[in-house]
Amino acid sequence: MVTKHKFIKNILFSLLILVIVLFAVFPFAQMISTSLKYSWDWGNPSLVPLKINWESYGELLGLSQNIKDLPESVQILLEETPDLTKEQKEAIIAKYRDTGDVFPFGEYFLNSLLFASSSAFISLIIAILGAYSFSRMEYKGRKVIQRGVLFVYMFGGILLLIPLYKVSVALGLAGTQGGTILSILIIYVVQTLPVCLYMLGNYFRTIPFSIEEAAFIEGLNHFQTIWKIIIPLSISAIATVYIYAFMIAWNEYLYASVFLKSYKDIYTLSIGLKSLFVSKNAIWDRIMAASMLTALPVVVLFLLIQKHLTGGMTSGGVKE
């Protein structure tokens, strides 16, 4: 009797876990599945494509020709005129491609990468100095700063958006592409800075002070200690914080949508995807492939640091 009861309990428990996992990953399964389906297969509720279609990935990554956007008559012409040279064919394709909207996925990807990696880097440097300061040194106002750091997350993005944009316009930054880049970079730094300070501060406090004391006796000054002792000792925490800051900037939409609006060349992935996929009926496969490729770097980075990140997150160092 007891074993039977336990058996049923185990089954129910497994079911519960299964349901939870399905709920969490279903949209991702949907994404992969649709990105690999041909358009005639979209209405099919099964997640397994009847025939695998790599075209949309090839197209986004610039590997394959974007034939699909060409008018049908031109496609027929291209297929049924065997005596066209390769150059001639390419010229025809290029001519028609200019009129359709080509998805500059690679360009947006690069923009996102540059914004996210550089703002996270600046934020990290400032945060290392700041966190070292309030976790190690004594001065007036230290506690206020230390506690106030997370308090600033009560101010949601929308509260700061209007004044920051107004200031950027008044300073003449929003009027030029260079100024806009600078504005967005600074904004991303400030968005990630508090959480970096908090997480690093928590970590630095766990490093025994005696190690630094030894360094001081050896004649190192504070900067040398940070460079030669603190940073090497906390390199995994620093990498974690960097990736976390990178993710915040990579995922950001609100500020990008306002500041970058009239600068198509510096669109990030989030506003690029949103603006290009307004009408979606014909291009679900491309949308899903782009979604996959946008999520991929973050997911990969995350899996690398998962252990450290979940620790940092649960100690309260988070931002949304």
Binding site: I17, I20, V21, A24, V25, F26, P27, F28, Q30, M31, T34, M247, W250, N251, Y253, L269, S270, L273, K274, F277, K280, W284, I287, M288, S291, M292, T294, A295, V298, V299, F302, L303, Q306, T310
Partner: peptide, 23 residues
């Protein structure tokens, strides 16, 4: 399971909304 359950939280919003819209 632990890793899979974190996916919704870490994936960029823009990359998951389209899958929901498709659903």
């Amino acid at each position: 399971v632990r890793s899979l359950l974190l996916l919704p939280y870490i994936a960029p919003v823009i990359s998951v909304v389209f899958a929901w819209q498709f659903f």
